[in-house]
């Protein structure tokens, strides 16, 4: 599904003394199957933005379209919208509530009145794709480890078979190995299911490694929208917004300042290894 925001505005507490314009004139288009990262300082409007993506919040100005259909239209089927757009909120494991892992994951499909057997299949498939073994189906979700709980919570959203998956800091609080596992899993699910994925993150390293495109929120406005290298080339502006660039970009900048390499725009480990070892090889070749 493609997503279009057209001049979206959102004001919290309109008419009260707490009135705050949380989204300011936001316009963008996300194509079907894209992998997009959203970054921004705390309070920049990221969460408000993603809550507009499945109609949890209704914009106070502008329009939101899915596949070119306006979701604020009375005829638009909101139930299907919530089914199509799955949001995994921060620390989703806090939302687990059922007595068993199986029941928790099946909660969504059951609410959609999907027949029993089909709901079971979806539950089974969702748990399989997050790497939770069948043997845990009847275990209480509260007996699982932190990383496992998070997987089960994500499976609950996947069981709805969403066409768009929005994740708010899915790796927060996990150790580096757990972090990589979760993000690899999300990338794999995106490939296999061919869905659109939107990843909200505070980690520049994760964004650099996984997404194709970055949107930068700042004080409620969409400040930048471009490819990973386009966005990370604007280091100064990002730092002023309380953000950063990946460690590799910082290092390449230092090497550039020292006059050792030319402006490369490199932000990944592989590229850095390739360019820096090539230069070492060239030098050794010349010395011989």
């Amino acid at each position: 599904m493609s997503i279009t925001f057209d001049k979206v505005d959102y004001i919290y507490g309109k008419g009260t003394s707490f009135e705050k314009r949380a989204l300011k004139d936001i316009s963008f288009h996300i194509r079907d199957g894209e992998f997009v990262g959203i970054i921004g300082h705390t309070g920049s409007g990221k969460s408000t933005l993603i809550q507009h993506m499945n109609g949890l919040l209704k914009c106070t100005g502008g329009n939101v379209y899915y596949d070119c259909k306006d979701i604020s239209n009375r005829e638009y089927d909101r139930k299907t919208l919530r089914q199509n757009v799955g949001i995994v909120f921060q620390y989703p494991e806090h939302q687990l509530f059922e007595a068993t892992v199986g029941k928790d994951v099946a909660f969504g499909p059951n609410n959609l009145n999907i027949p029993g057997l089909q709901a079971d299949v979806r539950t089974y498939e969702a748990l399989k794709s997050v790497g939770i073994d069948d043997s845990l189906l009847d275990v209480s979700p509260f007996d699982l480890s932190g990383g496992q709980k998070r997987r089960v919570a994500i499976a609950g959203v996947l069981a709805m078979k969403p066409k768009v998956l929005v994740l708010d800091e899915p790796a927060a609080g996990l150790d580096p190995v757990g972090r990589r596992d979760i993000l690899d899993m999300i990338a794999r699910i995106r490939r296999e299911e061919n869905i659109t994925v939107i990843l909200v993150s505070h980690s520049m390293e994760d964004v650099a490694e996984y997404v194709d495109r970055i949107m930068v929120m700042n004080d409620g406005a969409l400040e930048m929208d471009g490819t990973v290298s386009e966005v990370f080339a604007r280091r100064k502006e990002l730092e002023e917004m309380g953000l950063s660039v990946p460690q590799i970009s910082l290092l390449m900048g230092d090497l550039e300042d020292a006059g050792i390499i030319k402006d490369t725009g490199i932000y990944t480990m592989e590229e850095a290894v390739r360019v820096l070892s090539q230069k070492l090889l060239d030098r050794r070749g010349r010395n011989q």
Binding site: D175, R180, M269
Partner: peptide
């Protein structure tokens, strides 16, 4: 380090990779 759920810092890893 991986055994303990850790990674090498990015800069350290890059330095090790290019020797």
């Amino acid at each position: 380090l991986k055994k303990y759920g850790m990674e090498v810092p990015v800069i350290t890893a890059l330095a090790q990779k290019i020797g």
